[in-house]
Amino acid sequence: MIYSFGASNYFSFKDGFDVSFEFNSKVPKNISKGRKLSTVMGIKGANASGKTSILRSLEYLTAFCTRSFKRAEKDLNLVAPFFENTAPCEFYIDFEANGVRYIYETSITTSAVEKEVLYKKISRKTKIFERKKNEITYRISELEELDLIILRNNASVIDTLNFYKLDLKTPDISNVQSFFNAVRGNVSALTVLDDKDFSSYEDVNKYYHQVPSALEFAKNIIIKCDLGISDIQLYEHTNKQGEIEHFPIFFHSGGSEGTRALSYFAESHGTTALYRRLKTYWATLYWGGTLVMDEFDTNLHPDLLPIIIDLFLNPETNPKSAQFIFTSHNLEVIDHLGKYRTILVGKEDGESFCYRLDEIPGDIIRNDRSISSLYRDGKIGGVPKL
């Protein structure tokens, strides 16, 4: 689970940002539900304020720690400093993996990794390794294999060690890898992926066929959302290449004609989008990890949003404490999230900044007052200047 993460000199965040999932002692128990960390964080703000850049920083760290070694030797996956200045982009993430808390930091320019360091935090913060440029300046004795590896300008130590599949004497590197491997969503380095790209129709059907419990999960939610659907069943056919493919049929009940069957392509965009996305929601809830979704409300009715959010808030539907961080243009979602689970992003003179709503001093935001009305009136920031 993520405690907090942040970046500076990254896209429009010149001075940086910090996003914290931690609950303090002031958070009501009906909100924390006994957890020390929030399992949901919503990000709101005007268009071009920098909301997506916050999510991109998580995707960048994930790609750097899990896929950087296989890149072309000079490719740093388009790290983006503030207005293309020459100073490095700074990233950090404080998280827990397999019961151990870690802090990972890295500093990267458009041409090379300047610094990379991993800490473990038990009773105190202790360093596991430190890298400056392509030299290991510190390592624990259990990572003696680092002495034999030549580091590359554009690859992380984490992914380099994973690539060589060394028999390490410490689980720390595999713990960090497992954490980042469990980050999924629709954000890439430069854009938001269409559902058809990160959860394609064919892949979703194949997954639902292989994992019937995931299909049952999706079916129950779609039926609950009162879309007139009473059942979803998968069928199969053989394509021209002789391969078996699966396809869904949506059954609608009611009316004088009784039950009617519609193909996926005859359903609305909202229904098909929900059908595709629920595969990713189920996988995150079942396996644990972090789901990162930009504009997660696209093609979804506003009344559906609390249903999806509550899947992550409810310990019964989220026993692995999976975390969901997202952006949304829907206004009422703020009231459902409350001040402890909402980040507002603003921009002044081309520079972005952000804050969690409970960081606003005074009592303008109370648990018994609508936050969306305050937001609409511009009293807490994060709204477009029209």
Rank of each mutant, 00 (worst) to 15 (best):
E105L: 13
T106K: 09
T106R: 10
S107N: 06
I108H: 11
S111W: 15
S111T: 15
A112I: 04
A112E: 06
V113I: 12
K115H: 12
K115S: 12
E116G: 10
E116A: 08
Y119K: 04
K120W: 10
K120D: 05
S123Y: 07
S123K: 12
S123M: 08
R124H: 14
R124G: 13
K125T: 08
T126W: 01
T126C: 03
K127C: 04
K127D: 00
I128N: 03
I128E: 02
F129Y: 15
F129M: 10
F129C: 08
E130A: 14
E130N: 11
R131P: 13
K132N: 11
K132S: 09
K132D: 06
K133W: 13
K133G: 12
K133H: 13
N134R: 09
N134G: 06
N134A: 04
E135L: 14
E135H: 15
E135N: 15
I136G: 02
I136T: 01
T137K: 10
T137V: 12
Y138P: 15
Y138S: 15
R139G: 04
R139C: 05
R139N: 06
S141E: 09
E142D: 06
E142W: 03
L143I: 03
E144P: 14
E144A: 14
E145K: 10
D147N: 02
D147E: 03
L148N: 09
I149S: 00
I150M: 05
I150G: 03
R152H: 09
R152L: 09
N153G: 07
N154C: 09
A155T: 07
S156A: 02
S156I: 00
V157W: 02
V157P: 05
V157Q: 00
V157N: 02
I158R: 07
I158S: 05
D159G: 10
D159W: 11
D159I: 08
D159F: 11
T160N: 00
T160E: 00
T160V: 01
T160F: 00
L161F: 11
L161P: 14
L161N: 09
Y164R: 03
K165M: 05
L166H: 08
L166C: 09
L166P: 14
D167K: 12
L168Y: 01
L168H: 01
L168N: 01
K169Q: 04
K169W: 02
K169H: 03
T170N: 04
T170S: 10
P171N: 01
P171F: 01
